[in-house]
Design a protein around this nucleic acid. Structure first.
Length: 676
DNA sequence: AGCACGCCGACT
DNA sequence: GTCGGCGTGCTC
């Protein structure tokens, strides 16, 4: 028999495919497109995705190698999944292998195949185990708006993108669940994908889903899972056994052959953007995938991204408003602004805030203080000579961590003991400047010695599973005052919480990043939404949100005071349009890093010095805001266009030219960057 | 990107 | 005499 040649995509930055020989034999079934093959590559062995099977090849006979094995145990990935990877590869300007291969569970990629047969048997057990442990619950009645949202989404057929816009407590989750229920009931094998920003912070949602759909298999997909477990859940999605798939951004690249609905909760959340490797937007890929499959996609948020908001204003997305709070007695919290120029804080707390906390303590209610800065103090300083605790490897301060007596760089991980005296002049009186969550905790405990003060941040929840335990402590009511970073803003309903305070959120107002205020608004709205979610207590006052700021007249805080997302978003959009910024134009970023900043800048200058392209703006190279991280200097070059296709076409050509430049600079391009 | 090969400087 | 620095070249 004639040999067969397989065209295979591999996880390598080389922008081409590789042909391998496959020897036919009566024992081995013919390989198929979409199957995974194990091949020799250079001196390594790798797993690749079969993209074509043919009887000929252009590769010279002395170069071609043979396939080591084909993973017949894993059913082939279908053409639509491959098309998704191909789209992402083209759009983000990377080879398809760099998209497709990392999207597969590791156990399918390692040279020694794990026993898939055993795992497939395990799948059935997994489903049963989950069924035993839940108590089924029935769906609550929907209010008029929720009902209409479910009706609208389920009445149309074909591709339709929806923006489900509703404040915290308006019952978006219930719309997700009942929409999912209808789609699942409609077809024997249908699957629903639900994306959440961070799965570890939403155990409640997973619980709800399992209770509401007791007969159905639920798969979860996120980066915190063990490889064996990951394989099981991925396979259950891939084989169609899992009907509901709950996952983080990486789940958008999973194989879902019977997908009928995609839901993206908190669609504005920055964690939908992958920030390393293939820098994809799970939200954008979700919309593309829904379009490809001709199915609805629901983007839910109280504070939609300006991209999504603009789509809905332009009529490209269908807007569904939830304005009533679904929980009967729940009312919006009262937002008050405290001017810290007039009321000077001590220990970071104004007198008004301290009184508000005291009132909650007396009533046995909880308070939440939001301070987005972990550690004790962001820097220490010598008054005598001006020395500051700077990281020698990064353009950043070493943060003081008092509990473990360390100075720590939050960017490169460097740590050292807190010096007893100033390293340059010997002064023993070093000052902690500024305030992190640890210092706030210390101050609060001093003011309220009897109160149970509790801190939740990346430091207090470093151990696996400890975040969930920490949240449980708060839910149980074992906490009076909760201090937290952005970790506490997401997902959790605190039933006894009636006071939320934001300390010192001002820095984002003047950030270089034009998206900083959009993010701050979303974050404050979200954290404000933690208060009083279970409804008003008998005879109680509405929950309160206090913002301590030096800029009490800033429009962002005024919008927040009036719960006016729409006004805020419309104003920002107006500004963005005037200034020709996203979402009205499209951007790509060329980043370069080298030992010396000058080397990186020079590379970017050379890159910028290309033939002019109509409709493309190439800006000047600039050092990144945080120039040096871990002894590497970084610079970037922004490319803009008002036409997405024009930008794409330019990038394709440009990157080919850049690859030809002989350089030691490490560089890469990011499409639709969100952190500038 | 890995991973080799290859040709020049300081070590047991 | 070797270990190892990173320049250059290749991966079906």
């Amino acid at each position: 028999m004639e040999p067969i040649y397989l065209t295979i995509a591999l996880d390598t930055p080389l922008d081409r495919l590789f042909d391998y020989r496959w020897e036919p034999s009566p024992d081995n079934p013919l390989p198929q497109v979409g199957q995974i093959a194990l091949v020799p590559f250079g001196r390594q062995e790798m797993a690749g995705l079969i993209l074509a099977v043919h009887s000929q090849t252009d590769v010279p006979a002395d170069k071609i190698k043979s396939v080591l094995a084909v993973r017949h145990q894993c059913p082939a990935l279908d053409a639509r999944w491959i098309a998704l990877c191909q789209f992402a590869a083209n759009y983000y300007q990377r080879p398809i292998g760099e998209v497709a291969i990392p999207a597969l569970p590791k156990n399918l990629r390692v040279p020694k195949p794990t026993s898939l047969d055993r795992n497939l048997k395990k799948l059935a057990k997994l489903a049963l185990a989950k069924l035993d442990s839940v108590e089924p619950s029935s769906p609550p009645d929907l209010n008029r708006e929720q009902h209409q949202a479910v009706e609208t989404i389920t009445s149309k057929s074909g591709f339709a993108p929806y923006l489900l816009h509703g404040v915290t407590g308006s019952g978006k989750t219930e719309v997700y669940l009942q929409t999912a229920a209808r789609m699942l009931a409609r077809q024997e094998q249908s699957q629903v994908l639900i994306l959440v920003p961070e799965i570890n912070l939403t155990p409640q949602l997973e619980g709800n889903i399992r209770q509401r759909f007791p007969g159905l298999q639920v798969a979860t997909l996120h980066s915190g899972m063990a490889e064996g477990e990951r394989l099981l859940h991925w396979l259950s999605s891939h084989t169609g056994q899992a009907r509901i798939i709950l996952g983080t951004r990486l789940a958008i690249l999973s194989s879902l052959p019977h997908l009928q609905l995609i839901i993206i909760d908190e669609e504005h959340d920055p964690s939908y953007k992958q920030q390393e490797g293939l820098r994809y937007s799970a939200r954008d890929l979700a919309v593309w995938r829904a379009h490809q499959l001709g199915i609805p996609v629901v983007l839910g948020s109280a504070t939609p991204s300006l991209e999504t908001w603009q789509h809905s204003k332009a009529g490209r997305y269908i807007k569904l408003e939830l304005q009533e709070r679904a929980v009967q007695a729940a009312v919006l919290p009262i937002v008050k602004i405290i001017n810290t120029e007039r009321e000077k804080p001590s220990e970071g707390l104004t007198q008004r805030l301290i009184s508000a906390i005291r009132l909650r303590l007396e009533k046995g209610e909880q308070s939440l203080l939001f301070l987005n800065r972990r550690g004790y103090a962001p820097v220490i300083h010598c008054d005598a000579c001006g020395w500051m605790s700077n990281c020698t490897r990064c353009t950043a301060h070493l943060v003081m961590h008092k509990l473990d007596k360390k100075l720590r760089c939050h960017h490169c991980g460097w740590e050292q003991r807190i010096p007893r005296a100033c390293p340059t002049c010997g002064n023993v009186d070093l000052q902690a400047l500024g305030r992190g969550t640890q210092r706030l905790e210390e101050g609060l405990q001093a003011i309220f010695p009897e109160a149970r003060v509790f801190r939740i941040d990346a430091d207090s929840t470093r151990l696996k599973g400890s975040a969930e335990a920490a949240f449980d402590t708060v839910h149980r009511g074992d906490v009076d005052i909760l201090i937290g970073t952005q970790m506490v803003a997401k997902g959790h309903d605190f039933k006894n919480l009636t006071l939320v305070a934001a300390l010192n959120p001002d820095s984002a107002l003047f950030s270089q990043d034009f998206r900083a205020s959009e993010r701050l608004f979303a974050q404050l709205m979200q954290v404000a939404g933690r208060a009083g979610r279970a409804g008003q207590k008998e005879g109680g006052n509405p929950s309160e949100v206090l913002i301590q700021t030096r800029y009490p007249d800033h429009p962002l805080y005024h919008a927040l005071m009036h719960h006016n997302y729409q006004g805020f978003a419309d104003d920002l959009l107006e500004e963005r349009q005037q200034a020709a910024m996203p979402p009205f134009i499209y951007q790509a970023l060329l980043r370069a890093e080298a030992k010396e900043l000058e080397t990186a800048i020079l590379f970017l200058k050379e890159a910028a010095h290309c033939t002019a392209h109509h409709g493309i703006t190439i800006n000047d190279p600039i050092p990144m805001t945080m120039t040096r991280v871990h002894n590497v200097d970084r610079a970037q070059l922004l490319v803009e266009s008002n036409s997405r296709p024009a930008l794409q076409a330019f990038l394709r050509e440009w990157l080919a030219d850049l690859r030809a430049i002989k350089t030691r600079v490490k560089w890469g391009v990011e499409i639709d960057p969100v952190d500038i």
